[in-house]
Simulated assay, not measured.
Amino acid sequence: MSTLATVPFDDRGLAYGDGVFETVLLRDGLPVLWQYHRARLLRGCAVLAIPPPSEQALEACWQASESQASDPGLEVLKIIVTRGSGGRGYACPPDPTPRLLNHRVPFTPIPQRWKEGVSVCVCQLRLGHQPLLAGIKHLNRLENVMARREWQHPAIAEGLLADQQGNLIEATSMNVFWQQGGQLWTPRLKECGVAGTLRAALLDLGWVKEGSLPLSSLYDVERLWVANSVQGVWPVTKLVSTAGETLQRWPLAADDSLQALAHPLMGYPPDQ
């Protein structure tokens, strides 16, 4: 397993998206929700049949003293594993030499979005079904890139993505949660979507259940959130068009139930 700052032209991750990645919150140099990031990366390597990095190589990604921040505080670490070079066309090399890359930068969350909530839109793009790749964070994110191009309005924080059947799956870079009947829910990701690490922790603790939410029922939910393991939990207060026109409003609760559960797992304040 080689560790490089750059990748050569023939790297399969660059050419084909043949690899996986993780985006990890570091708090004072230590990874948050690391067991879930590690598990998802190793599962992705197994699905793609890429030899996984050693434990020592993975730990070196966050133990390295290459932080650009004078006071570490909060940082974001990105880890990329590609199959490496070789093979002819799409054919994989019989004995690949994977590449492990990592980079970390200082990070500041946006507490205003925790406190005041955000506006989201529904993207026109529909996610394709590929059960083999569902859940893992592979390098081919073109669906997310194309969906993110659908809005430019500065008031829109995220775009919601549905699958071909019109069921809500995720946001462009976050998972989705909703409240109905007092229960917290998140979409099932059996056919497509990325299984986030904060989402995994909440499911493991039994605080959230998996369910289905057709876009046609989105207007009926009691509460709606978008969240991930870096930004934390953003309550959704408005559903808008890509031009910013308000389509639906949700009240901002004085005590946010999902933030109260999720933020302590990340070291963030439980409520704002």
Rank of each mutant, 00 (worst) to 15 (best):
R126P: 01
R126F: 00
L127Y: 00
L127N: 00
L127Q: 07
G128C: 04
G128R: 00
G128Q: 03
H129D: 13
H129E: 11
Q130N: 15
Q130G: 00
Q130Y: 12
P131D: 09
P131I: 09
P131Y: 08
P131E: 11
P131L: 10
L132F: 03
L132Q: 14
L132K: 12
L132T: 08
L133E: 12
L133T: 13
A134H: 02
G135N: 06
G135F: 01
G135R: 04
G135P: 07
G135D: 06
G135K: 07
G135Q: 05
G135T: 08
I136E: 01
I136F: 00
I136A: 00
I136T: 00
K137T: 02
K137H: 06
K137L: 01
K137F: 02
H138Q: 13
H138Y: 10
H138M: 08
L139H: 02
N140G: 08
N140I: 04
N140H: 14
N140R: 09
R141F: 03
R141L: 14
R141Y: 06
R141P: 08
R141T: 05
L142F: 11
L142D: 05
E143K: 00
E143C: 01
N144I: 00
N144Y: 13
N144Q: 15
N144K: 00
N144G: 07
V145F: 11
V145M: 09
V145Y: 10
V145Q: 07
M146S: 00
M146N: 01
M146Y: 06
A147G: 05
A147T: 08
A147K: 04
A147C: 05
R148E: 13
R148L: 12
R148T: 09
R149E: 14
R149D: 06
R149K: 14
E150L: 06
E150C: 06
E150W: 08
E150H: 07
W151S: 12
W151L: 12
W151E: 13
Q152Y: 04
Q152L: 14
H153K: 03
H153L: 10
H153S: 11
H153N: 15
H153I: 06
H153M: 10
P154G: 06
P154S: 04
P154T: 05
A155V: 11
A155N: 10
A155Y: 01
A155I: 04
A155H: 07
I156L: 14
I156M: 12
I156D: 12
A157L: 11
A157N: 14
A157S: 15
E158D: 15
E158N: 10
G159L: 08
G159N: 07
G159R: 04
G159T: 03
G159S: 06
G159F: 06
L160C: 12
